[in-house]
């Protein structure tokens, strides 16, 4: 993939492949699917197939908005074919909400085209760079709520997902980063952080979702701390459209 064409190839039809990772509610020994997070992979066989590389590149090119739009289009086009009415999480950079003044209209049209009830959507805000227009960002959040979407803040506890963001946005969901989840069963400091964020979520009338749950003992620990919404390889890896259809049919 050479210079100028890398971004073009990511953005051309078929450049983005959507995958869907189940979010489950695990409580009292029962596990039920609560929703799906729509994730994206870049062109097959390229460095951008790995999502971390894809989005780091996109942020360095400052093309978050274009790629966010492409990812959402692909994800919702696929989600249209899924049975049921599970919640659907879509990822959006804070910078997209702050800078792309046409984004809300784009989302409304995309949701309509996919014939998906916008009330099923959770817009997961990814915040990696602070310099966005705060007024426009908060106006976009307000518009998303008016549309009927719910709001989540991603990667809580890491990087730029700070307390200011939580206070400004009043999200419906806090997504606890895997860094705090992995090993929480054997690390009292991680449990302490999770407990504090759990309390913050409760005080804000928000739900807490633990990401990156891979070990049964960590899942058990999270439940003991009052966290029931979970996502991670313990329950399911991100699935292709065909695989998630099978998962939902099972």
């Amino acid at each position: 993939m050479t210079g100028e064409s890398a971004l073009n190839r990511i953005l051309q039809p078929g450049g983005i492949t959507p995958v869907y990772q189940p979010v489950v509610r695990s409580k009292n020994g029962t596990v039920e699917t609560f929703g799906l997070e729509c994730l994206s992979r870049g062109p097959k066989g390229s460095n951008f197939e790995q999502a971390d590389v894809l989005f780091e590149y996109v942020r360095l090119k400052r093309e978050e908005s274009l790629v966010d739009r492409a990812c959402i289009s692909e994800a919702l086009r696929g989600a249209r074919m899924l049975p049921g009415a599970l919640r659907l999480g879509i990822n959006v950079h804070a910078s997209t909400l702050g800078r792309d003044h046409g984004f809300i209209n784009f989302l409304r049209k995309t949701v309509e085209a996919a014939q998906i009830d916008v009330r099923r959507l959770t817009v997961e805000i990814v915040e990696h760079a602070p310099p966005w227009d705060g007024v426009s960002f908060l106006a976009a959040i307000e518009q998303l709520r008016k549309l009927g979407a719910q709001i989540a803040v991603d990667d809580v506890g890491l990087g730029q997902s700070n307390f200011k963001m939580l206070l400004d946005v009043s999200p419906d969901y806090l997504k606890l980063d895997r860094y705090f989840v992995d090993g929480c069963a054997i690390d009292p400091r991680r449990r302490s952080v999770i407990g504090a964020i759990r309390q913050l979520a409760a005080d804000s009338h928000a739900h807490l979702i633990a990401e990156g749950v891979e070990k049964p003992e960590d899942a058990q620990c999270l439940q003991s701390l009052g966290v029931t919404l979970m996502q991670g390889f313990l329950y399911s890896k991100p699935l292709t459209l065909d695989a998630v259809r099978e998962y939902l049919a099972a």
């Binding site: 993939m1 050479t2 210079g3 890398a6 460095n47 790995q50 971390d52 590389v53 894809l54 780091e56 590149y57 360095l60 090119k61």
Partner: peptide
Amino acid sequence: DAAHELEEAQALLAN
């Protein structure tokens, strides 16, 4: 691994 532009290399080095 190979990269063809600055940002692609930086994204790989970050991960």
